[in-house]
């Protein structure tokens, strides 16, 4: 039954099964995501959006199926992961610098190389934070930015983001969202992002994956190909409004079923 995934996909999911407490969540779920894209996942509560990216990123076991990242098993791929709750995902006993360096140190990268990579990162994205401070002394947006840098420093082949804005207030959401767009434009690292807000799902994405209630199906892949960088004006552009409206329409239909 196994079919080789298309070569130009950064993530390929085939015949995925996962159940929770005897309730099927995913049944023969298939997904193939084209590379160099930023992809948002949106769906009703409890449909297993986070479960899906946790399985793809190897943080959660699944019952059956095959998942590959750039054609390799998950274990062999370099991934970056940004958690929803930065406060519980950063290590408060380490300074921001040591937090960012951690994925490199785990791999045995030398201190000099760590220093070089972090400097490059900080200069490329114009990060103006005192990295010798501890995470808890930063604001929420700054902490989430440190989490994103930590996920980027190891030169990941794919970046997973689990509701990266949902613990932030509106003002900082705008800041982190713009930084994330800047990072995507500069690095081109493919990103898979779970978002709980439709506007945010559409704003940054090349494609929005709309999921159904459980057992979860992929209802539709909605492309959104407005050129980057996208700005606040994007939000009032006819394309954005049309795509958002279409997504909302499908979401309503799914909820009504």
């Amino acid at each position: 039954m196994m079919v080789a995934p298309p070569a130009d996909s950064f993530i390929a999911v085939q015949g995925l099964y996962k159940s929770f407490l005897g309730q099927p969540l995913y049944e023969d779920f298939n997904l193939s995501l084209p590379t160099n894209q930023l992809i948002s996942i949106f769906g009703p509560n409890g449909c297993g959006k986070s479960t899906l990216i946790n399985m793809i990123s190897g943080l959660l076991p699944y019952d059956q199926g095959q998942i590959t990242i750039h054609g390799k098993p998950i274990r062999q791929a370099r991934i970056g992961y940004v958690f929803q709750n930065y406060r519980d995902a950063l290590f408060p006993w380490l300074t921001a610098y040591d937090n960012i360096a951690y994925p490199l140190r785990v791999r045995g990268v030398s201190a000099a190389e760590c220093h070089h990579r972090i400097r490059t990162l900080v200069e490329t994205f114009n990060i103006r934070l005192d990295l010798e401070r501890y995470p808890y002394s930063f604001s929420g947006g700054q902490q989430q930015l440190v989490s994103i840098l930590r996920a980027l420093v190891g030169d990941p082949e794919v970046l997973f983001l689990d509701e990266p804005f949902s613990a932030l207030d509106f003002e900082t959401t705008l800041f982190v969202r713009d930084k994330l767009q800047e990072i995507f434009i500069t690095t081109g690292i493919p990103m898979l992002m779970v978002v709980h807000n439709l506007e945010e799902a559409v704003y940054l994405a090349d494609q929005v994956l709309l999921l159904s209630k459980r057992p979860t199906r992929l209802v539709e892949r909605v492309p959104f190909d407005l050129p980057r960088p996208r700005t606040p004006d994007t939000l009032s552009s006819p394309e954005f409004i049309q795509v958002s409206h279409h997504c909302l329409e499908i979401f309503r239909q799914e909820m009504g079923k």
């Binding site: 943080l59 370099r78 992961y81 958690f83 519980d88």
Partner: peptide
């Protein structure tokens, strides 16, 4: 649990998770 998962996502092995996360 989230910090253990974070270390795991960054490629830490069991021993590294123990000494870098659990201990702290």
């Amino acid at each position: 649990q989230s910090r253990i998962l974070a270390a795991q996502a960054m490629g830490a092995n069991r021993w590294q998770i123990f000494k870098d996360v659990l201990l702290f």
